[in-house]
Design a binder for these strands. Structure first.
Length: 343
DNA sequence: AAGCCGGGGAG
DNA sequence: CTCCCAGGCTT
């Protein structure tokens, strides 16, 4: 930030606000300032594209229209409404935060940035977004869009994979921050999503292109700089799909590692069940940090007495083909159940 | 400060 | 195939 300190860039923020008035996306959470809804939408769309999360957001708000309803719901049902979205700690934390708001704020959503920041699953970005959009807060909601737009505008090569990137780009954002911070934050999101896209940005339609340094240098694809590459490691999982007469056995995962608190098939079976093992199927599934190879053994328990004894232990949860969608399974397991239905 | 957590769509 | 998305938590 060498050559930017002496210049006044406030007009940039106002250009963005004017652009936003005419080009704001028509999204369901744009028609409200209810901090509950804005909070939910901010969590849903963390690391998630609008088109991917829109149905989840709408279904979530329909089932849990306010903090109290969410706080009083069972965790499994919150997870169910998060099914397929990924990053499941968000669902667990969103439920804990709702309880927090009931206990610590009498069910009234906190209005101060510092208080919002105390909620589980709420970091500096989300606290800034909610406080600015709903309570006239003045903090920039620095996210991936800010990184991209600002690094291009200033042709700034600061590495966004550096852990100091957030504070660095917060200072850059402060240079152009107008009075109406809430609209400004949303304007940056829309510009980054619709115009200043990661690849093939639409600079001809950008309200900032006359002053954008990356554009003047025709180096848009050089920004932002990101040095750290994510590498996925291989991981083998084994499951036994133990079933009889349209019912099958599942258990719930812990809240560590992948797929926190989602349901899964049995990772192992006792020797009495081994005679019923039929065939195995291997599913390859890619996560951001893992390449999964999931081997699933089909175990058709053809003996009524063995099945009855199995159920009697009460160690497992019984699910069935009729309503398996009432529990939250990892995507590859849900697909496996779906395919089993066709057989 | 670095590593980890999903799933999907774009190119 | 690679990249990255309205990030945050844990260690």
């Amino acid at each position: 930030m060498k050559n930017t300190e002496t210049s006044d860039f406030k007009y940039i923020g106002n250009i963005l606000l004017n652009w936003y008035k005419k080009n704001a996306r028509d999204l369901p959470f744009r028609q409200t300032k209810d901090p509950y809804k804005i909070w939910i939408c901010e969590i849903v769309f963390q690391q998630t594209r609008i088109n991917q999360g829109l149905n989840h957001y709408n279904n979530f708000i329909k089932r849990f229209p306010d903090v109290k309803t969410l706080a009083e719901a069972a965790e499994d049902e919150v997870l169910l409404h998060w099914k397929g979205l990924g990053y499941y700690s968000r669902a667990i934390n969103i439920h804990k935060a709702a309880k927090q708001i009931m206990a610590d704020y009498h069910g009234s959503f906190p209005s101060e940035y510092g208080e919002i920041l105390k909620l589980k699953g709420v970091g500096k970005y989300t606290a800034a977004a909610v406080s600015s959009i709903c309570f006239n807060g003045k903090m920039p909601a620095v996210d991936g869009n800010f990184y991209r737009v600002l690094s291009r505008f200033f042709a700034d090569g600061f590495d966004i994979s550096n852990s100091k990137a957030f504070s660095y780009f917060s200072e850059l954002a402060a240079l152009i921050l107008p009075e109406k911070v809430g609209d400004f934050n949303q304007a940056m999101m829309d510009l980054g999503s619709e115009i200043c896209k990661p690849k093939n940005p639409l600079c001809g339609e950008c309200p900032l292109h006359e002053n954008c340094l990356a554009f003047s240098l025709q180096k848009m694809s050089s920004f932002p700089v990101k040095t750290k590459k994510v590498k996925a490691e291989n991981l083998q999982l084994t499951y036994y799909f133990v079933h009889r007469n349209g019912q099958f056995l599942i258990q719930q995962r812990k809240d560590d590692f992948i797929w926190k608190k989602l349901f899964e098939f049995l990772p192992e079976i006792s020797v009495e069940l081994e005679p019923f093992v039929r065939n195995a199927k291997t599913i390859n599934h890619k996560l951001t940090h893992k390449n999964l190879s999931i081997e699933i053994f089909d175990v058709d328990v053809t003996s009524a007495s063995v099945w009855k004894a199995l159920i009697g232990t009460k160690k497992y949860i019984i699910s069935d083909f009729e309503n398996f969608h009432e529990k939250s399974f990892p995507k590859p397991l849900e697909n496996y159940i779906q395919n089993s239905l066709k057989d």
